[in-house]
Design a protein around this nucleic acid. Sequence first.
DNA 1: ATGAAAGCGCTAACAA
DNA 2: TTGTTAGCGCTTTCAT
Lengths: 369, 369
Amino acid sequence: MSDTPQRQQSKRPRVTIVDVANSAGVHVSTASRALNPGTSHRISSKVVRKIEKVAEQLGYKRNSLASSLRTQKTGTIGLIVPNLSDPLFSPIIASVEERVAQDGYVTFVANSDYSPAKLRSIVERMSGQFVAGLVVASFELNDPSVDLCLELGIPTVAVLRDPRDARISSVAMDDASGVQAMVEHILDLGHRDITYVTPPLAASTAQNRLVGFNAATRLAKAAGCRFNVVEARAYDVVEGERIMTDMLASGLTSTAVLAFNDLLAVGCLVALKSAGVACPGQISLTGVNDLPFMNMLSPPLTTLHTAGRDLGFESADLLMSLIKNHVQPVKRVLLTPHVVLRGSTGPARKSEPTSDPSSIAARSGAITV
Amino acid sequence: MSDTPQRQQSKRPRVTIVDVANSAGVHVSTASRALNPGTSHRISSKVVRKIEKVAEQLGYKRNSLASSLRTQKTGTIGLIVPNLSDPLFSPIIASVEERVAQDGYVTFVANSDYSPAKLRSIVERMSGQFVAGLVVASFELNDPSVDLCLELGIPTVAVLRDPRDARISSVAMDDASGVQAMVEHILDLGHRDITYVTPPLAASTAQNRLVGFNAATRLAKAAGCRFNVVEARAYDVVEGERIMTDMLASGLTSTAVLAFNDLLAVGCLVALKSAGVACPGQISLTGVNDLPFMNMLSPPLTTLHTAGRDLGFESADLLMSLIKNHVQPVKRVLLTPHVVLRGSTGPARKSEPTSDPSSIAARSGAITV
DNA sequence: ATGAAAGCGCTAACAA
DNA sequence: TTGTTAGCGCTTTCAT
């Protein structure tokens, strides 16, 4: 760390539209019209060209604050995620930003930290900044902030997590069917005692995945299989490790563990390794999201792929059209997650009665189903 | 995907400070002063309380656009990164956002996509939004956008990548010393033929790491060791795989490969596995950054730890004080990366003459040096 | 096709 | 301590 001379800001006075008008020898309103795509056709093209030239020469930049104050429109949208550090949100952030930039919008990003109270205050703050719209990945089920957004009149689209409010559009993964497919894969492998690790059911993701698990297991349960749900308190690796350690300590009988997401699954994997339990030899393990590097773990993690870029793009696209057409049908988009078969799932260790003992999927490399 | 009834926005008329003043029976300016932390002490506390109560009841929210237009100050800062999808930037984004939120600022995030031209246009766009300051992780060496920021009078702090401009503060990792430490670790393991994979030298990170590599190898080179630098064209996994595949095809003699970053290293690892080359048995491999899950790879990757949260926090902190005190000494902060020893590095495969054949570091688990 | 004038909502001299 | 007044830079009726 080194200190050097004083720093100076030049801060030259900014060129305004008045300067442009004066230099061009026209009235401000003429300059304004000429410089606005929507109104420039009302000005003779000769004058438009002249004004544009002068503006260019003077280095004129529109003051978007003043413009927005007058028009009651801003070129900004807000993106709220529950955890900025979770790699799951990186592609969502990137693709939302890309999509809205196509329409000239810039993106505010904020972190709600899985707290409805923080979400509320962020919405208020962003409303104060007059965002043109909001993409929200932080909504819980029946989140009161949905009301807030609607009251404030902010066009809002939910992404990833769906608050299940009939008044609001959403783009999410079809979690239920995804988990269902995963359970079927596990059953195909001959597992007859399966544990699912769920977080608290605050969000749609948590609820839908549990629904999917229960739906998939209903029939098998009648046939004598054992299914078990364990509740985690968080969504991260540390919690996954804690959960699995606990389960092992209290005599886990399951031969397969499905985790709510990859982070919990990775935590489980850490715990398994520490305990010297083979995966998938003794216990098969799966996650959800297919985060970066999940294909590089040892064993590579079988998981459901979450199309982060698609989620972000679709939701931003929906928001853009919502902003353009002030009234619009509510859409509820569901993207289908696909099972990515990798090395963390394998045949059940104890041979149990199986109606269909064949179909053991190949597991070399990553096979997408 | 389902369509349902029409959606409606309520968009009730917004309460202004005039409404508050009228309801409270005072003049607008009094209301303004009462509602501003900096001036409320000039108003009798009785009146302040009354105004605050009325504002609360009416649901008054300051119009920050109008406020900013008048004061020429905004509560927004810009954060520009070269790749929003790279997990490296997640903790930087999160911590910058957290730090500036402490001072009531919201954060614009944008992706420059490793393009100086895009960076320039983003800076211009953000300047148009009147950001109070900029944290930039996208600067290349002698980046022309530095001039632009200075001309526009925007307080700017560089993070991670240092443009090496005497007029601008920066917070970065001490890349040179980090790589130097890494080379020493590799030499200690007995390696005498080492390859370093560098990206193009556009950024300070690339240049400094190469400098560190060269400095560390200078003496050893005189003692007959072989060092070799290979240039990659990008920073990602795919490129790492390509590079390593190429090197193997053209008869790689090195027993250790140092990659510019973890992504390249992971790519190299993929190629090694495909080619059936043992790591670290035949080739040791290292990365830089210590991205999430690098400790879970097989083998776990030896790397330099980049303190993303510290980088973000420090740079944002610097920016906040730069905004407060309009003139301020330029600071150049360097954080020390530490070597994280893991399983991807081991003793050299061919025993070569070694001046110091002892000191083979333990490699079970992650040991931080 | 262009000019005149008002005003978006707020803050900050200047008065009193 | 409070009120008066002007104006940040822009867009947009309403005239001409």
